[in-house]
Structures are given as C-alpha cells and as structure tokens.
Amino acid sequence: MTRPMTSSKPVVELQGISKEYKSGPKTILVLEHVDLAIKVGERLAVAGPSGSGKSTLLNLIGTLDAPTSGRVMFKGRDVAKLSPKDIARVRNRDIGFVFQQHHLLPQYTVLENVLIPTLIAEAAPRVVKRAEELLDRVGLADRVDHRPNEISGGERQRVAVVRALINRPSLLLADEPTGSLNQQAADELARLLIELNKEFEMAGRPHARGDCGGAAWAGRVRNGPDQPAVRRAARGEGSR
C-alpha cells in the first residue's frame, strides 16, 4: 500500500533495534530485533494495545531516545554516531513530532509556539507568513495571538501539528495525536494529517490508537506477526 515515491531511499531505517527499560531490579524488554524502513512520502501506522511499545518505537525513530541495541539510520547516517549538535539539527530540520500531549510552551502565543523551531533554521519574515498560512490551513487564523491555555484541546493539537510541520520535515511522527481528543476532533485531525501528508509529500508515521481505529488514515498498518517483539508486546508479553 505504499504511495508512489519520489525516492525509494528510506528516510529512516531501524536495524535490529532492541529496547529494554530498567526498573528497579527488573529489566523490561519492550522491543526485540525490530527492523523497519520508512521511505519518503510513505504513510505508516503502528497499531497495538496500550503498553505494547508504540511510543517506545516512535521515540527511537524520532531520535528522542537511544536503543539498547541495534542501529537507527537517519538518511543513511547512524544516529548514535551523531554529535548532540547534529542530532539537534536532524530533529529540527527533518523530523516533526506531534505528541500525545501537545507540549506547547504555555508562556508563548500560538504563533510563537509554531515559530520556535524556526529560531534555529530560517529567516523570519517568510517563516512568519508560512506559519500564518499553515495556521489558517488548520483553521486557527484568528487564534494566533492566544496562549495554549486559551484554546481547546483539539486546537492545541492542531497547533502542535503546525509546529511539527513548520520546518518542512521529511518525517512527521505523531504519537497517538488524537488520544486525548473526542471522536469528532480526532477525526478532523486525522483528516488533516492525511491531507497535509499529500500536500507536503513527506514520510509520515502517524501512530494509531490501540484499537487501530485511527489507523484508517495510515497508508500501511504495521502490526504483522513477522515482528515478534511488537507481537509479543501486543500480547502483553513485553516484560521478562
């Protein structure tokens, strides 16, 4: 179900990834030998019940966490070997992240929140225009001067999406972005993501909700029995 791609080279590739958490005396193996490649323009959803390791996987893809073993290759470069500066650059330029909680900074307005990633990348005037266009696109044109606590949960999540897209990332990661929204807002956001994915032609990895309902908009649902760890996690056998 892959969309036609401009390039068949993967944006990000996981090679034999394992991830375990240490909690007190126990070690919890969440992911075991996961191999995964995401290509430009591809839409992919990962489904699984709560606690099965979806967030863990997403954090690894998004360089927000390091695997216990295995390699994360981003555009052909081993993330583990990048300097903090280079990782920061990758996060800023190539990855857009939408969290389950919006993680907007409360002290800034909607527009400012959207512009924060551009503080590093682009020159101001054009970026402001683009931010306003994007906010307009998600229906928040008249909310730019509000602060996060002055808008609704769905609106916040849309701001977070715009923030994730502002630097034209090649990979948009969304970890249960609709998880804290009601059905209508969730559907709206899902539609938006699909449209944006088409418009911006980027690799997308929206993370579906545990019941797979949200995976409807994903180009590919990753839940196969060929991934023992994911499967095991899905059966609640993640810990050992």
């Binding site: 500066k85 920061a88 990758v90 993680h103 900074l105 924060i116 990633p117 590093i120 990348a121 923030r163």
Partner: peptide, 16 residues
C-alpha cells in the same frame, strides 16, 4: 524539565 525536553525535541542543541 518538560520545557527543556520540548526544546530538545524541536531541535535545540544542549548548548543552545
């Protein structure tokens, strides 16, 4: 701390 994390995930390097 969450603010620091947000900034880090948005591509701010530790020194920044």
């Amino acid at each position: 701390a969450p603010e620091i994390a947000t900034l880090a995930s948005l591509g701010f390097s530790p020194s920044r």
